[in-house]
């Protein structure tokens, strides 16, 4: 098995979508296209209890085949890297399970193997998690209530690249913000292996009172498809092909 390239969208938000198409449907679509959607709901450190509308966070990630977490600002860094890692493992496991079914017959998953073999399979999953290539498109909700959380977001993104770049597989990150009046989402950082030099990325932002999470996700998905233009030429790869190994 040769590790392939995993594709993820990481959505950071603090509220419920209230504009445009259903983000859960878009996430399901993304999953179909081989792009995993992870969602982190960012709470205010001073906030008490769970605000309304954050159930959507879980539903979007579930539909997108990814992982979700609702956290306070101060645990954001650790959560961002954990969620990304977990989702990678989940994707790889899903793939390994598919292979197992092909080899061993219907419904044979890792969980159903005897412990001995299970032990060997998880080592393979670990190995792939270390060596596969990864693309993460970070989609940041920059609506008014998120503004004062953006410095923490920036720090968490730097921290994410610190964690992932210690792997032997290569990483590409890009950062988009929404809402943007013209293009729905706004490119803040183009594909790059490092998120170290992202000073002032969130300095010039417009924010309306609306949160078009669905349209933003869809736009992100298009961006993903368009991303490997040169890569597509290089590998002759269909951008919408499911992640394979």
């Amino acid at each position: 098995m040769k590790p392939g390239r995993l594709k993820q969208i990481l959505l950071l938000t603090d509220g419920c979508s209230n504009h445009g198409e259903d983000p859960i449907a878009v996430a399901a679509l993304a999953r179909n296209q081989g792009v995993t959607v992870n969602v982190i709901g960012v709470l205010d450190d001073r906030q008490n209890g769970r605000p309304q509308g954050l159930e959507e966070v879980e539903s979007i990630a579930e539909a997108g085949g990814g992982v979700s977490q609702i956290v306070y600002q101060k645990s954001l860094s650790q959560t961002v890297q954990m969620v990304t890692r977990q989702a990678m493992n989940q994707t790889i496991q899903g793939f390994v399970n598919k292979e197992l079914t092909e080899i061993l017959g219907k419904d044979q998953t890792i969980e159903e193997l005897p412990p001995e073999q299970r032990g060997e399979v998880v080592e393979v999953v670990e190995e792939l998690g270390e060596s596969c290539d990864l693309d993460v498109l970070v989609l940041v909700d920059t609506s008014a209530s998120m503004h004062h959380k953006l410095p923490t977001v920036k720090e968490a993104l730097f921290d994410l690249s610190l964690s992932l770049n210690a792997r032997s597989g290569s990483n590409q990150f890009s950062v988009y913000a929404f809402p943007d009046p013209k293009k729905t989402i706004k490119k803040m950082v183009d594909w790059t292996p490092e998120l170290g030099e992202i000073h002032g990325i969130f300095s010039k932002l417009n924010s309306g009172g609306y949160t078009p999470t669905g349209p933003a996700l869809k736009e992100a998905l298009y961006t993903f498809a368009g991303k490997p233009l040169f890569e597509r030429l290089r590998d002759g790869e269909d951008p919408y092909e499911e992640t394979g190994f």
Binding site: N89, Q93, I110, E111, P115, R118, G119, V121, V122, E123, V125, E126
Partner: peptide, 10 residues
């Protein structure tokens, strides 16, 4: 999480 448990066992 059976995978994680297995890694610990290993």
């Amino acid at each position: 999480d059976s995978s994680r448990m297995m890694l610990e066992v290993n």
